[in-house]
Nucleic acid binder design. Structure first.
Length: 452
DNA sequence: TCTGGGGTCCTAGGACCC
DNA sequence: TCTGGGGTCCTAGGACCC
């Protein structure tokens, strides 16, 4: 479908998409050459593990990412499943971004192993997209030792489809080489869309595909014959608008440079489900440490804390609380988390516990929030400001008020833990000892030491 | 075969303000 | 006295992406 005689200009192929091949697994092979040529995967090896990345040798046996590890192991008994080493992948990811940045600063990462780039600012330099893509690919291979596919197109939709097309494919357990670089010529866009299942579109997963199937919509070309209002009744206005655009080959998503982080968190599925309040609380304490350290590392404070609990039947519930000020320390995050958990039925086995922070403020904004609180007499912010004036980052009083607020919302006598509340309704976390809310919290940047 | 962990975005309902 | 509509924020849940 490529027209080899023509080399598009930047205006004909403005968007580029790069996707590293089998990224995590490839890094593992680079770090341990003895793995070369073997079926390797990165993921959880336990009963509840899933595959995050699989080498092409593993893919020949049908191993795919998101596949449960037990299934993968059955498909490929010799599969070597390694735990993820995300610090390593981040090192490679940064090098990958460095190479892309040499081409253009107008790029947008997606996860660790993909980027979109907008080439239009290179117009005056007479950059030819196909040549630039080939150079990019060669450099990534030479300098990082990694293979990748590069796609070019009029927009993100076609650039991404093109990079996928450029990749090696498993056919009848054999590996078929990809072209490495692929461009969807605008004249051929319609032909492309004609043969594409809706499931191939960005944002169409199993649930949306099922809804569309009920409407008799299987192919992208089918989408062009329903009106957007009808579509919206089934998939919502935003999805309907996106699908209607994709069906015409349009995609209004821009390449967003420096997308701001909006939330961060930590989730863990336990090899053995937790049972009882004590086990869940202990896990929450560990989670709070992880989240707090991540916040401080990224120099953020968060106003909103959320917990998510998934039970053995895979149903889940979430609870969240937004404060008038931001926090970044484990004691505060844990305390809010504990208060939130009080309205969750912890008599059921807990398969997964998640703790998330969002609603970020800059540290300077947080100070303003706290100062402003004095004027508005907002209860928690005022208390926080008073505490701040004493040299503390967030005061005990502010936090206590925030926790009281959670209590008001859910009621004091929540499931499971009511008997463990102190009579004055303060400080859930003080159960474990003197560190929780006592005056010894001085809000410095160091970790609060805790008893084992 | 039975579903991870890092995230983003959307929706709907309720509270609150104007 | 009863009533409106729009905007914004918060919460809970769901879907999706890599």
């Amino acid at each position: 479908m490529n027209s080899p005689s023509k080399s598009p200009t930047v205006d004909e192929a403005p968007i580029l998409h790069v996707d590293l091949d089998a990224f995590f697994a490839s890094v593992e092979v680079l770090d341990n050459p003895a793995l070369q040529g073997k079926p390797v995967a990165v993921g959880g090896a336990g009963e509840r593990g899933v595959i995050a990345s699989a080498s092409y040798e593993a893919r020949r046996y049908g191993v795919r990412s998101a596949m449960p590890s037990v299934v993968a192991k059955r498909a490929c008994p010799s599969l070597i499943i390694l735990p993820g080493r995300f610090d390593r992948y981040e090192v490679y990811s940064r090098q990958f971004h460095d190479v892309v940045r040499d081409l253009t600063p107008d790029y947008e990462p997606l996860g660790l192993d993909e980027v979109f780039a907008d080439l239009r600012s290179l117009r005056r330099l007479d950059v030819r997209p196909l040549e630039a893509a080939a150079t990019l690919r060669r450099r990534i291979n030479d300098e990082l030792g990694l293979l990748c596919g590069v796609g070019l197109g009029r927009n993100k939709l076609f650039a991404k489809l093109a990079s996928k097309e450029s990749k090696p494919r498993v056919v009848d357990r054999g590996l078929v080489e990809g072209s490495g670089v692929f461009w969807v010529n605008p004249e051929q866009e319609a032909e492309w869309l004609d043969v594409l299942p809706v499931r191939a579109l960005w944002g169409v997963g199993p649930a949306t595909a099922a809804k569309l199937a009920q409407l008799g919509l299987t192919w992208v070309r089918d989408l062009a014959r329903v009106d957007e209002a009808t579509l919206a009744q089934h998939v919502g206005p935003a999805m309907a608008a996106a699908l209607a655009a994709y069906a015409k080959g349009d995609d209004y998503r821009e390449v967003v440079v420096d997308r701001a982080l909006k939330s961060l968190g930590h989730d863990q599925t336990f090899a053995r489900s937790l049972s009882g309040v004590d086990e869940v609380r202990e896990a929450l304490r560990v989670h709070a440490g992880v989240v707090a350290r991540a916040l401080r590392e990224k120099d953020r404070v968060a106003r909103t804390v959320s917990v998510i609990v998934r039970f053995d039947d895979l149903s889940s519930v979430s609870r969240s609380q937004t404060l008038s000020f931001g926090i970044d320390d484990e004691v505060a995050i844990e305390a809010i988390g504990e208060a939130l958990l009080q309205s969750v039925d912890l008599s059921r086995s807990v398969r997964l516990l998640g703790l998330h922070a969002s609603g970020f403020l800059e540290r300077s904004e947080n100070q303003m929030q706290l100062s402003f609180g004095i004027e508005t007499a907002s209860r928690d912010a005022k208390a926080g400001a008073i505490a701040l004036s004493r040299g503390r980052q967030v005061g005990n009083e502010a936090l206590r008020d925030a926790i009281d607020e959670v209590r008001r919302r859910f009621g004091r006598t929540s499931l499971g833990t009511a008997s463990e509340l102190r009579e004055d309704g303060v400080a859930v976390a003080t159960q474990r000892g003197r560190h929780a809310f006592g005056p010894e919290i001085d809000g410095d940047e160091g970790d609060v030491t805790r008893e084992p």
